[in-house]
């Protein structure tokens, strides 16, 4: 089974995000970068499929040279090799990122592509599904369980108010949702081994693409901070009953939400 995993390096979710002076990007200072949490699930699921079916796990990422760290983490978890696509000065929107990945993947042999359903920085929910379209393969999103049989993948997916099971013929792309698995930590021997695993970097030109076809259709005009919430009223009272009555009264008469 040839398995490809899409991965992105993102600021850790505990990060405080501040806007840079240009007003269209964030301040990189002091940010800790990690593998996107949904991509950890993707790497783990790929490793489990390889463990049961044999094959190779290849990680692909679009990002600056620094993003190689996140690929190395995936290699340390057990993936076999990595490809970093460095777009250089080009600012990629979600679709341009999918185009880069499609160009790298088209000449490759693969049975399954596994990706996080979104990256927790841009929150675009776009790259994985758009890539499936560009490759002309089916995609299944929000996967919490998958089984492979007879050239097909069957997935349990979360949807609003329930679940559904979707089946697709391989090759297919699946996008992970929390609950799929519990990602392993990279072991110390794993980290040592990862240093020797192949990780190649490709430029836009290496992929045979032209920056003109990758110009972003979505551009950030301005970033702003959401209105900061200030603490309101602490409900006082001698007993729980008094406080609860005061709260319900406030919600009913003042806030008018119940």
């Amino acid at each position: 089974m040839e398995i490809l995993v899409l991965l992105k390096q993102v600021p850790a979710t505990e990060s405080l995000i501040a806007i840079a002076n240009d007003r269209v990007s964030i301040k990189p200072d002091g940010l800790k970068y990690v593998m996107n949490p949904y991509d950890e699930l993707a790497v783990e699921e790929a490793l489990r499929i390889r463990e049961s079916q044999g094959g190779t796990v290849t990680i692909l990422s679009v990002g600056p040279a620094k993003a190689a760290e996140a690929i190395r983490t995936g290699l340390a978890m057990g993936a076999d090799k990595g490809i970093l696509i460095d777009p250089g000065n080009l600012t990629c929107d979600g679709l341009a990122t999918a185009k880069l990945l499609a160009a790298a993947i088209k000449p490759m042999t693969y049975d399954i592509i596994i990706a996080g359903h979104r990256a927790v920085d841009d929150d675009n929910f776009q790259v994985a599904t758009a890539l499936a379209e560009l490759l002309g393969i089916p995609n299944i999103s929000m996967v919490v369980k998958q089984t492979l049989a007879d050239g097909k993948i069957r997935c349990l997916c979360t949807v609003e108010g329930g679940t559904k099971e979707v089946e697709a013929t391989l090759p297919a792309l699946i996008a992970t949702q929390r609950g799929l698995n519990d990602p392993r930590y990279a072991s110390l021997p794993g980290i040592m081994k990862a240093k020797k695993k192949p990780l190649e970097t490709r430029s836009i030109a290496d992929l045979g693409l032209d920056a003109a076809g990758l110009q972003p259709l979505v551009t950030i005009k301005a970033l702003k901070m959401p209105v900061e919430r200030k603490g309101g009223r602490v409900i006082e009272g001698d007993s729980v009953a008094v406080k609860v009555a005061a709260l319900v009264k406030a919600l009913h008469e003042e806030a008018k939400v119940i």
């Binding site: 929150d123 259709l217 005009k221 301005a222 970033l223 702003k224």
Partner: peptide, 19 residues
């Protein structure tokens, strides 16, 4: 021009859509 949260809602972005 659309306004959308990024970083899980820590930031709001005004984005312009072309085409």
């Amino acid at each position: 021009v659309a306004t959308r949260p990024m970083y899980g809602g820590k930031i709001l972005a005004d984005v312009a859509l072309s085409g």
